[in-house]
Structure formats: C-alpha cells, structure tokens
Design a protein around this nucleic acid. Structure first.
Lengths: 141, 141
DNA sequence: GAATAAAACAGTAATTATTATCGTTTTGTC
DNA sequence: GACAAAACGATAATAATTACTGTTTTATTC
C-alpha cells in the first residue's frame, strides 16, 4: 500500500517546476534546501517508484547519469553535443514510424524514442562548456 | 601518433563479426580466448579510441552498460523491453525529420537517433528472460 | 638488425552512479 | 492513542567505467 510522503511530493514538485530534465543528484541538491537531511537514496527510491507508477519518466540517453522528466506524454528531446543539456522539442510525435518500422523487423515494436543531437542555443557561438549545474558531459553519437 | 596494436585489431574484428552490439565486458570475455591476459581497461581504452576516430559507435541507450556497434552508417535499433537485446532495424533512415524538427526548436539539430522498443522475437511467447550472454536488463521507457 | 622514443599494454586502484540494507521515523487505519 | 506498513536517513555494497603505473610493443632511425 502506497503511503504519502512529504519527500516524494517535493521531488515531484521539483520535477514539474523544472524543464531541464534534472539528474537525481541535481534534484537531491535542490531538495537539501527544504530537507537538509534528505538522503540521496530517498531521491533515487522515489524517482524509481514514480517511474514504475508511470508518473514520471527516466531518460537514459544523455551520456552519463540518468535524467528524469515530469512530462509523461511522449515527446522529443534535443541533447546538446557540447554540454549534454536535454531540452524538449515541442513537435508532434510521429507515431506512424512504428508501423513503418514494423515492416522491416521481426521484433515487436510498441513504441519509439527519438533524440535529436546538435549544439543547444546556449552553447552556440559561446566557448562555454557548461549550460547548467550538472553536466553529464558531451554526447558522442 | 597512432600505433598499430594486435589487441585493437582483434576488438574491431569481434565487433565486425557480431551483430548483437556487445558490451565492453562481452567483448572482453570473447577476447580472453585469444589473449588470456588482456585487460578490461584495454578493451575500454580501444573502444573509446575507435569511437573518437569514428571507426565504431557507442550505444548508450539500452538501459545499463554501454554497447558498441561496428556499423557506423546511421541506422535504427530495436531494444527489447524484456531482455534488453539490441537489434538492427534495416529501414532507411528518415533524415528529413531533422529539418522538420528544426522548425520547432532554437537548438541546432545536426542528427538524430531513434530507438524502437518492444519485445524481441526471441522473447515473444517464451518465458525466458535472457536472449544473450550479457543482459543489460529490461528497459523502462 | 640493434637503439630509441612513443604508444599501448596488463594489472590494479580510484571514481561515479546506482542499488541494497537496516535500524528508526512517519503515515494511515482502527 | 495503538498498531502495522511504508518510508526515511545513513551507510555499505555493487557495477560500470576511468585513471594510474611500471612493463612490453610498435615504428623509426641508424
């Protein structure tokens, strides 16, 4: 039986308020302001719990640490090849590609995930190597 | 200056001979047959070196360990949600999606990577949880 | 073919992200 | 308020990957 928890509620709120798909440790650092004793394990446990409940999503493709997304509706992401930042790409998802691809494989296709790569607008032209606090590093693709 | 190495050549050969996108440790176990003293660090060093030379590709989206692909031409992958196996989907890559997506974001798009999810043909109907030697585990997406 | 310097190696330690354990605290129900 | 289950914080353990170090290979020059 699932019980309410202040920590879990706050983790969810942090995730809903930010659009930068933070890592567990970024969320942890943010929550330490409100709960100075919160444990990183609590953050991971609740993130994984909410993932399995379908309340949030895990993004495992940004190069290093997993990132988390409060928006569960399918959508596209852009991953910066310079700083590793993950941004949403507000384009309608092309679901028909699933049926198209199904014609070319024996493996059952039930969904897909597309990541766009390139330099993000904060890195373009600048010599900066960081776009945000926690950098899972540049992505090679 | 890049020097030749027997180990690196063998790693490349193993990668070209298999189509299952093996992890570093799978390649390592394979190579121990030929080089009983080869080090896992050597495998990682050479895989990363060849990645940066553009000779091979790293696949970081299968859930756990990174996988490597000897085919550098852009192509699609299918990731089994049950066993984590990664298979090629021999479908022509739709490059026009890059320009389409560019209309919806300020971030520069230079390429994309698409992963199809679903149960692979080896897992369909069977109660098995393993499709191959090294299982990076089921993927949640 | 030997001398040499750089590159690569094997072995091992270190790092990082994540998960597991465990005794204590919080939550929801009676 | 009493109780049991769930969640917590702290910490240990695991797993993947990278870094370090002294030794061996490789390619070049004689």
């Amino acid at each position: 039986m699932l019980k309410n928890s202040r920590q879990r509620n706050s983790i969810k709120m942090v995730l809903m308020q930010r659009s930068d798909h933070p890592t567990a440790s970024v969320i942890y650092r943010e929550l330490r302001k409100e709960y100075p004793n919160i444990s990183l394990g609590t953050v991971y446990r609740n993130l994984n719990l909410m993932c399995s409940l379908g309340e949030i999503r895990k993004i495992s493709c940004s190069g290093e640490s997993d990132r988390f997304d409060g928006i569960i509706a399918p959508h596209y992401h852009h991953i910066c090849t310079k700083c590793g930042a993950v941004h949403d790409v507000p384009m309608q998802v092309i679901d028909s590609i699933n049926e198209l691809a199904q014609n070319f494989t024996e493996h059952r296709i039930t969904g897909h995930q597309t990541y766009f790569y390139g330099i993000c607008k904060d890195c373009v032209g600048k010599n900066r190597t960081k776009c945000q606090e926690d950098i899972p590093g540049p992505v090679t693709h």
